[in-house]
């Protein structure tokens, strides 16, 4: 594929779980959030746990990297997820079990030209 043709977007959730909550929060994310996200066109590419052990007195950081095919797919994901009360309720519950959370969108350098060519 030529430079500028790829437009793959990465959506990254980074959740710092409350001490001792890491494993349970990971399991709930995969069981309760991930199926709906897949239905909205997101593809779960990677799940990471840091440090690579379950802490019971400190926080684990959970990272989930999703891919989205292009900007049209991003808006589809955004409109459906952003208007779903169950999704909003999920994040409210997850935030109550987390010390902090980030969601950000990124791309591999090879995708930037295509994403910015609008």
């Amino acid at each position: 594929m030529a430079t500028g043709e790829r437009r793959i977007i990465q959506a990254i959730d980074e959740i710092v779980a409350k001490p001792g909550e890491g494993k349970a929060l990971l399991d709930d994310y995969l069981a309760r959030y991930a199926p709906g996200a897949r239905a909205r066109g997101m593809v779960l590419e990677q799940v990471l746990v840091s440090p690579p052990m379950w802490l019971d007195d400190q926080s684990n950081t959970l990272s989930f990297r999703w891919s989205i095919a292009d900007t049209g797919g991003w808006w589809q994901m955004r409109f459906v997820g952003g208007n779903d009360p169950e999704v909003i309720a999920w994040w409210a519950e997850a935030d109550a079990r987390a010390v902090s959370r980030r969601r950000f969108f990124a791309a591999e350098p090879v995708d930037i030209e295509g994403l910015c060519h609008v």
């Binding site: 999704v87 994040w91 969601r103």
Partner: peptide, 13 residues
């Protein structure tokens, strides 16, 4: 969508 929309997106903290 990757910068400004986080202020609007219910999925973003």
């Amino acid at each position: 969508w990757a910068r400004i929309d986080r202020w609007f997106d219910p999925e973003c903290p």
